[in-house]
């Protein structure tokens, strides 16, 4: 997993609350066999609506999503996080995230920056007034910055450490490589292998 220290990019305002993971990506996409390519399923039901924010040329290329409260509720599907990342989002800013979604995001390397709703409202106004506004999400200082606005955000300290280091669960386990090798050397000779 790539380390996340700071990210600056344009942002898309998603003025909706309670966006559940079925809305983020519908169940039909769960039959796929790849880990990537879920961007076409992102917010599938809304993508036919020309008014939908991601369909507006102004917000093409946005890499920060500023969403309403209770983002990511519902099904635990990891695909919701993958779809956001595949689309190009590096961070989601909201005043409330669903627990499982937030956990899945941390594992996959998508930053979920928890701010107060006032910050969300301010960001929405700024982005809508000027879609080229650059938003910086800085994990080191735990702040969101845009124009004159600088606001702190909350993130789980363990997730923050992992993202700063660029460590996924597997990366963390592999730090115990020598323990694993030592254990392997002590396994009994009668333990079977699958080779023939």
């Amino acid at each position: 997993m790539d380390a996340f220290v700071t990210h600056t990019g344009t942002a898309a305002p998603l003025r909706r609350s309670n966006v559940d993971t079925d809305q983020i990506i519908p169940a039909e996409y769960l039959k796929r066999i790849t880990r990537h390519g879920f961007e076409d399923g992102l917010f599938k039901a809304w993508r036919n609506d020309p008014e939908f924010v991601l369909n507006q040329a102004d917000y093409a290329g946005a890499s920060v999503l500023v969403a309403g409260p209770d983002f990511g509720t519902g099904s635990s599907r990891e695909h919701a996080v993958w779809a956001l990342q595949d689309y190009g989002f590096m961070a989601v800013i909201s005043s409330r995230f669903a627990d499982i979604f937030r956990g899945n995001s941390g594992k996959a390397g998508l930053l979920t920056a928890l701010v107060d709703q006032e910050t969300v409202e301010q960001l929405w106004l700024m982005i809508e007034a000027d879609p080229t506004t650059l938003v910086t999400v800085d994990l080191e200082s735990q702040t969101v910055a845009a124009g004159d606005l600088v606001a702190p955000f909350d993130v789980d300290p363990y997730v923050r450490w992992r993202l700063l280091q660029g460590l996924d669960d597997i990366g963390i386990t592999l730090q115990s490589e020598s323990d694993i090798s030592t254990f392997e050397a002590s396994r009994p000779a009668f333990a079977p292998t699958t080779l023939t």
């Binding site: 997993m1 790849t34 880990r35 386990t173 115990s176 694993i180 254990f183 079977p192």
Partner: peptide
């Protein structure tokens, strides 16, 4: 951290796991 002696794999729950390994070069 527990060692796993035998890992059985089938077609339904493994494709994304292999894809992610490929992605990370592991």
């Amino acid at each position: 951290l527990l060692y796993i002696d035998l890992h059985l794999v089938h077609e339904v729950t493994s494709p994304q796991a292999f894809d992610a390994l490929r992605d990370a070069g592991r």
